[in-house]
Simulated assay, not measured.
Amino acid sequence: MTRPATSRADDAARPATGRTVLVTGGAGFIGANLADRLAADGHRVVVYDALLRPGVEANLAWLRERHPERVTAVVGDVRDAGRVAECVAGADAVFHLAAQVAVTTSLVSPHEDFAVNLGGTLAVLEALRRRGAPVPLVFASTNKVYGNLPDLALSATNDAYVPVDPDLRRWGIGEQQPLDFHTPYGCSKGGADQYVLDYARSFGIPTAVMRMSCIYGPRQMGTEDQGWVAHFVISALAGRPISIYGDGRQVRDILHVSDAVAAYLAAWERIDSVAGQAFNLGGGPGNAVSLRQLLAYVETLIGRPVDLRFSDWRAGDQRYYVSDTRRAAAALGLPAPTPWQRGVADLAAWLAEAGARPPDAPSVRLMGAAE
């Protein structure tokens, strides 16, 4: 579940480490949670963010309020190579999360998607190469590097797709799965993924790649295009209809953001042994859930049915993706992740407190939360 909040007094009592960490996209959902943890652990954090996504200004204000002495913000675009280089020059480690994050946007604006995701990543890598010092970089990639997995043999139950292969049902999809980029988003993130790994091979920069499945949790204000778990909960709390693209049986392994943050920090801590490697990062088979199953659970939390609308499948959508997390768990020393029911209840409570509910129902009581 979420790490207990620290106060300014707690941070003041915890001595600074002397290390400066750059988090690109640090005002976003995962970035803000990561920056918060880094600052709470005593690091000086530089949040580099263009502040283009709705809601990120609130995340930045939250970080500044919690860590006024340790969080510095630089409002900038990751495509600005000169400004990126200025920030990289003073960093002891870099977490590169800045990205164009929606498949739908990449189909509308492929050039912008390419420039942000691949060009921006290359700007960070080149700045690190020019440093001439082994500064670690941990990169946020995606399971979309594996494409839409059209050859995966699946059977359809009443509410979920299930792999025919028993080993796949038991373990999920591992890093040995061939890369198969689909959609401009898949190409840009996949290309960036490969550049990050190659800069470890070609230039000795200690890099690691996290191929993330669906991350969710507090500070996620999801939309229909990205952040579907939070989007579903927000819509349910507000009594708005929810559009399902496909039949709702598609399955993902969802991972609470506190577990994702722990994995990123572990990769940095163990960068000498994991440099040049990519890891599938998700909730694993124990946290695999279909859209239908998650919505049924949300209904139990809010105590009323949700209004579902169905539309055609979208380009590049995977009917089934579950991470084989054994390699990441072993290499990074990760504990068992938060059970998805508990994590979704945590997210729903945070969203309800944040005001994501109908104005005529100010005291929405969340029921059935898993303990």
Rank of each mutant, 00 (worst) to 15 (best):
Gly248Ile: 04
Arg327Ser: 14
Asp151Lys: 09
Pro68Glu: 06
Leu118Phe: 15
Tyr195Gln: 15
Tyr161Asn: 00
Gly147Tyr: 08
His67Ala: 13
Ser290Tyr: 05
Gly283Met: 06
Gln220Glu: 13
Gly190Glu: 02
Leu63Lys: 09
Ile302Val: 08
Ser258Gln: 13
Ala369Trp: 01
Val21Ser: 06
Met221Cys: 10
Val138His: 03
Asp151Asn: 14
Ala61Phe: 01
Asp346Pro: 02
Ala278Leu: 11
Asn143His: 04
Tyr146Phe: 13
Ala275Ser: 15
Glu65Arg: 04
Ala133His: 07
Thr20Asp: 03
Tyr320Leu: 03
Ala361Leu: 05
Gly18Ser: 08
Pro359Lys: 07
Ser213Ala: 12
Asp225Ile: 00
Lys144His: 09
Tyr245Asn: 04
Val56Phe: 05
Ile215Tyr: 09
Arg240Val: 00
Gly217Lys: 05
Gly120Cys: 15
Gln100Asp: 09
Arg219Ala: 07
Gly316Trp: 02
Phe310Pro: 15
Thr157Ala: 12
Gly120Lys: 14
Phe95Glu: 07
Thr223His: 05
Arg292Asp: 09
Asn117Thr: 04
Asp198His: 12
Asp253Ala: 01
Ile205Pro: 00
Ile30Gly: 10
Val306Met: 02
Asp193Pro: 01
Leu301Ser: 08
Arg252Tyr: 01
Pro150Ala: 01
Ser109Gln: 13
Gly222Met: 03
Asp324Asn: 10
Asn148Phe: 10
Leu52Cys: 07
Ala156Pro: 11
Val364Pro: 09
Leu128Ile: 14
Pro358Ile: 11
Gly239Met: 01
Ile271Leu: 10
Ser106Gln: 10
Val162Arg: 08
Gly355Ala: 02
Ser188Pro: 02
Val56Asn: 07
Ala266Asp: 07
Pro335Ser: 11
Gly368Trp: 06
Tyr185Asn: 02
Pro184Arg: 11
Gly284Cys: 14
Asp180Pro: 06
Gly172Lys: 01
Ile30Ala: 15
Thr20Arg: 15
Asp180His: 15
Ser7Arg: 06
Arg201Asn: 04
Gly333Asp: 05
Ala266Asn: 08
Ala278Pro: 15
Cys214Thr: 12
Pro15Gly: 12
Val344Thr: 11
Ile254Cys: 02
Thr207Gly: 00
Asp92Lys: 00
Ser363His: 11
Val274His: 00
Pro150Val: 03
His182Cys: 13
Val45Ile: 10
Val251Tyr: 00
Leu52Asn: 12
Ala40Trp: 08
Phe181Pro: 00
Val124Met: 07
Gln100Glu: 14
Val261Gln: 07
Phe181Cys: 02
Asp307Leu: 00
Leu255His: 03
Ala354Pro: 14
Thr72Asn: 09
Val261Ile: 03
Phe29Trp: 07
Gln220Gly: 06
Ser202Trp: 08
Asp165Tyr: 07
